[in-house]
């Protein structure tokens, strides 16, 4: 029914794309959809990915992205690729999407989950849309395999860790960072105290939460700013008794995807090292 309606719409508007079969010219305008697309699609299906997909600190698939035309999520660029499917994130500029929709392009907005389950759903959904169900299942299987052996339980005795970013931002409940901490057996005091999403917290609050360690991620090479100097506040150093903050590569947990397990692995290693002390 829906497919029929879409097909009808396409014919009516004489849109450039062919109607039947898996899409052959997919354009992704967002870093997170870029990565899932490049992991799941046949290379011939990809028409363009966003420029961020090539940034090494942000993108897990920067090397794979090297061969594809890039876009900056601008309407003309997207149309120029004559896509039969446009991949977008929930927060992609709505004006861009509205314009594309008006012109008759097919848009797929992936929900981008922030839990392991959500990630699996995203993978299955996109795999199905691309006609690559098999590849999706393989990817999911690999994820499970890396996670399953040491699924540490989280209890009251578990050590506390906080994700702490320049300008004092932390991740509470409903974030990938929270999920990774949970999967690695760390308690996240921010989530426990009802903090939701990615928010700034003040230093006094951070100290009162008494985290045993802090994890941070830089999405560019370390530079100098007051925001970044905040991470070196003497109070934090004393709080952590001199243990340096651990840096988790940004690309592992900025977007939902199988790369989250890499972050979990690093967090587990940090936990084991802590237990050994």
């Amino acid at each position: 029914m829906q497919a029929k309606a879409i097909a009808l719409l396409l014919i009516l508007l004489t849109a450039p794309a062919a109607a039947a079969g898996p899409p052959q010219r997919v354009v992704s305008v967002n870093l997170c959809t870029d990565q899932l697309l490049l992991m799941l699609a046949d290379p011939r299906q990809v028409a363009s990915v966003s420029y961020l997909s090539r940034e090494r600190q942000s993108s897990f698939v920067a090397e794979q992205a090297a061969g594809y035309p890039l876009n900056h999520a601008r309407t003309e660029e997207v149309i120029g690729h004559r896509p039969d499917l446009v991949l977008a994130a929930p927060y992609t500029n709505p004006r861009l999407l509205a314009t594309l929709e008006k012109l008759g392009f097919v848009i797929e907005k992936l929900p981008l989950g922030y839990t392991l389950e959500g990630i699996i759903k995203d993978i299955r959904r996109l795999a199905a849309r691309l006609g690559q169900t098999q590849r999706g299942e393989v990817l999911i299987e690999q994820m499970h395999h890396r996670l399953q052996h040491n699924d540490a339980p989280t209890g009251l005795l578990s050590p506390k860790a906080l994700f702490y970013q320049p300008r004092g931002y932390t991740s509470g409940a409903n974030t990938l960072q929270n999920e990774a901490l949970r999967l690695a057996g760390w308690r996240n005091p921010a989530a426990e105290q009802g903090v939701e999403g990615y928010v700034a917290v003040d230093l006094e609050q951070v100290i009162l939460w008494q985290p045993d360690t802090l994890f941070t991620s830089t999405y560019k090479d370390r530079s100098i700013s007051l925001a970044e100097r905040q991470l070196e506040h003497p109070a934090l150093k004393r709080l952590l008794a001199g243990i340096p903050m651990l840096e988790i590569p940004y690309k592992y947990w900025i977007c939902p995807g199988p790369m989250l397990v890499e972050a979990v692995a690093l967090l587990r290693k940090a936990r084991e090292e802590r237990d050994a002390r």
Binding site: G168, L203, S223, I224, S225, A227, E228, Q230, H233, P234
Partner: peptide, 25 residues
């Protein structure tokens, strides 16, 4: 123009002044 991605957001701080997060450093 500064290399840091956070620099632009710190304009207000330099123009208005703030004592947040000062340390003994």
């Amino acid at each position: 123009l500064a290399p840091s991605p956070y620099a632009v957001q710190e304009i207000a701080l330099w123009m208005l002044g703030s004592l947040a997060n000062v340390s003994r450093n």
